[in-house]
Simulated assay, not measured.
Amino acid sequence: MKATEIGKIVHSHPLLLGSCSLKKTSSLLCTLHVGKKRLSQYIQENPQVLKNWGWDRKIESFPDSGDEVRSKAERTKFLPDIGFVENSSKMKAALKACRGNGEELQERFDCIVKAGSDRKDVCELIQSCPQNPNQTTDVIEMKIDCLVNELGYPISSLLTATRYLSHKMERVKLRVRMFNWLKDHGIAAPGLSLSTLISCSDSYFIKTYVHRHPAGPQVWHDLKNEIESNC
């Protein structure tokens, strides 16, 4: 939802927003079985529905729209083409995890291939993490460029760090730059996989790595502020 659209709801329904303790967006999207675009449109048309989506409320999924039925049919065709077995549990889970129609998913798939990955590897990547093609091609290109040209990892790292494309770049950059700082100061041994670096929780990363050096917490804080200010 655009800032102007959010502003309209804030100005017109301040009491409603102040009285709602909403579920997380990711939880709503999953429970309602709806995409961000449709959810945004629905909220703008029916702001009062927010009071039904509190953390203590039971939520029922939206009925499928015509567009969503077509989109699901296209996803059902796309997924077997990249190695999913029809009617399998993995296929059913992937149908729920994937966002977009068949054309969009194919464009995103091709985007990863064109960046230098083998088609077979991209199939395995999406089978391991079906959320990977949920982003626009621009975002995928930006994340791969960051992986290779800024962070210094080969594109083949995607096969082991299968959730890299689904993580926020701020998280990835902060973890990698902090770990590189620790390596430069002889505190951390090289060779830790990208997957290990980005998959653990912040609390675990800070406890296990950042606190190895007395200046670590301050460096972590400074890097975090720098990265967030540039995003």
Rank of each mutant, 00 (worst) to 15 (best):
P47R: 09
P47E: 05
V49W: 01
L50Q: 03
L50M: 11
K51H: 13
K51T: 13
N52S: 14
N52W: 09
W53F: 06
W55Y: 13
D56P: 02
K58Y: 13
K58G: 07
K58Q: 15
I59C: 10
E60D: 08
E60C: 07
S61H: 15
F62G: 08
D64Q: 12
S65K: 08
S65Y: 11
D67G: 13
V69H: 04
V69S: 06
V69N: 04
R70Y: 10
A73Q: 13
E74R: 12
E74K: 09
E74N: 07
R75I: 03
T76V: 02
K77I: 08
K77P: 00
L79R: 05
L79N: 05
P80H: 12
P80C: 06
D81M: 14
D81S: 13
I82L: 14
I82N: 01
G83N: 08
F84D: 04
F84R: 10
V85K: 15
V85S: 10
E86D: 12
E86L: 14
N87S: 15
N87H: 11
N87L: 09
S88A: 05
S89P: 00
S89R: 11
S89W: 04
S89A: 10
M91S: 00
K92F: 03
K92V: 05
A93K: 14
A93M: 13
A93L: 12
A94P: 07
A94C: 06
A94R: 02
L95R: 04
L95S: 03
L95M: 13
L95I: 10
K96H: 04
A97G: 01
A97F: 02
C98L: 02
C98P: 00
C98Y: 00
R99N: 09
R99P: 00
R99W: 11
N101T: 07
N101A: 05
N101P: 07
N101I: 08
G102T: 08
E103N: 06
E103K: 14
E103S: 10
E103Y: 10
L105N: 03
R108K: 12
R108M: 04
R108E: 03
F109K: 01
D110M: 03
D110G: 00
D110T: 01
D110Y: 02
C111V: 08
V113I: 15
V113L: 11
K114Y: 02
A115H: 11
A115K: 14
G116C: 06
S117W: 06
D118A: 06
R119Q: 12
V122Y: 01
V122K: 02
V122H: 00
C123P: 01
C123K: 02
C123V: 03
L125S: 04
I126W: 10
